[in-house]
Simulated assay, not measured.
Amino acid sequence: MTSYSLPTQVIFDQGRHPHAKIGFVLLATEQTIEDDMRLLLPDEVGCHFTRAPIPDSITVETLTDLGSSLGDAARLILPDGSLDVISYACTSGSLVLGEEQVYAELSKGAPKAQKTCIIASVIKALRAVEAKKIVVVTPYLDSINQMEDDYLQASGFEVLDIQGMQLEKDSDMIRVSPQFIVDYAQRFDSPDADAVFISCGALRSIEVIDQLEQALGKPVITSNQATAWDTMRMAGVMHQLLGYGQLLAQH
């Protein structure tokens, strides 16, 4: 005997993430950002990740070559168009390409979502804490540091100093100890700086933001902290969080 389902009216709700859905395009080599976003964003916000191909070598050349793959990567996140915000979650990659090119590429894969990238999120965060003079510490090679210096200066900040650890491999950047990040930032901080920016989503810097702010007596902005804050605010989520610096606690 053949059995048929009886007609019924299916009941829907808003799903698991009613507040917002945020997408992140990561480097293929990335090992820190997913954990940080799941930690910093509230449960009601969906975190969705995809990756763009790159070798374990973070240089101006490899980051430039990756640019054309951002659209294909973005296309893999929620093709139903329900994504609220999408971010290219790479600090060095977004400043090498520039925001305009990043958004053009992301639009190919996620045309309805609002676009951002880490360097844009950092600039918004620095302005939110009213920083004008900054010190920047990074894991990068000097070729990328120079581009970051130029980018931040062009965005209206006075970069008093920028110091890089001269690391090329993402697989090395993710292993830099949080205590070394503290020591490195304290070593190069300037009393004239309004804030310290710890650049790179691969660094485990969110773990030491509060410690550094207490030691330095000024705001500390990190790539992943700024990204979580900016993407939430763009999605209309005003969640505030203690333990990860003034930015997430007060802005």
Results as ranks from 00 to 15, higher is better:
Leu6Val: 12
Leu6Met: 10
Gln9Ala: 07
Gln9Trp: 05
Ile11Gln: 12
Gly15Gln: 15
His17Val: 03
Ala20Gly: 00
Val25Leu: 08
Leu26Gln: 12
Gln31Val: 09
Gln31Glu: 11
Asp35Pro: 01
Asp36Ser: 06
Leu40Gln: 08
Leu40Tyr: 11
Glu44Ala: 15
Cys47Asn: 15
Arg51Cys: 00
Pro53Arg: 14
Ile54Cys: 08
Asp56His: 02
Thr59Ser: 15
Thr62Pro: 03
Leu66Trp: 10
Leu66Asn: 14
Leu70Phe: 12
Leu70Val: 11
Leu78Gly: 03
Val85Cys: 01
Val85Ser: 01
Val85Glu: 02
Val85Met: 00
Ile86Glu: 03
Tyr88Ile: 06
Thr91Arg: 04
Leu95Tyr: 13
Gly98Ile: 04
Glu100Thr: 15
Gln101Trp: 09
Ala104Ile: 06
Pro111Ser: 10
Pro111Trp: 12
Lys112Val: 03
Lys112Tyr: 09
Lys112Ala: 12
Lys115Val: 10
Ile119Trp: 00
Ile119Thr: 10
Ser121Gly: 04
Val122His: 04
Leu126Gln: 06
Leu126Cys: 06
Leu126His: 03
Ala128Met: 14
Ala128Cys: 12
Ala128Lys: 14
Glu130Leu: 11
Ala131Met: 08
Ala131Asn: 10
Val137Gln: 04
Tyr140Asp: 05
Leu141Pro: 05
Ser143Arg: 01
Ser143Asp: 09
Gln146Cys: 07
Glu148Lys: 00
Asp149Gly: 04
Asp150Gly: 00
Phe157Pro: 08
Phe157Trp: 11
Glu158Gly: 01
Val159Tyr: 09
Leu160Tyr: 06
Leu160Asn: 05
Gln163Lys: 11
Gln163Thr: 05
Met165Asp: 14
Gln166Leu: 11
Leu167Ile: 12
Glu168His: 03
Lys169Cys: 11
Ser171Pro: 02
Asp172His: 02
Met173Phe: 07
Ile174Ala: 07
Pro178Ala: 13
Gln179Tyr: 07
Tyr184Lys: 13
Tyr184Gln: 06
Arg187Thr: 11
Phe188Leu: 14
Pro191Tyr: 10
Ala195Asp: 03
Val196Lys: 13
Phe197Glu: 02
Cys200Ile: 04
Cys200Lys: 02
Gly201Leu: 01
Gly201Arg: 01
Ala202Gly: 15
Arg204Phe: 01
Ile206Leu: 11
Glu207Gln: 14
Glu213Tyr: 08
Glu213Ala: 08
Gln214Ile: 15
Gly217Asn: 06
Thr222Asp: 04
Thr222Met: 07
Gln225Cys: 08
Ala226Leu: 00
Thr231Gly: 00
Ala235Ile: 04
Gly236Gln: 10
Gly236Phe: 08
Val237Ala: 03
Met238Ser: 07
Gly243His: 11
Gly243Pro: 06
Tyr244Asn: 05
Ala249Arg: 12
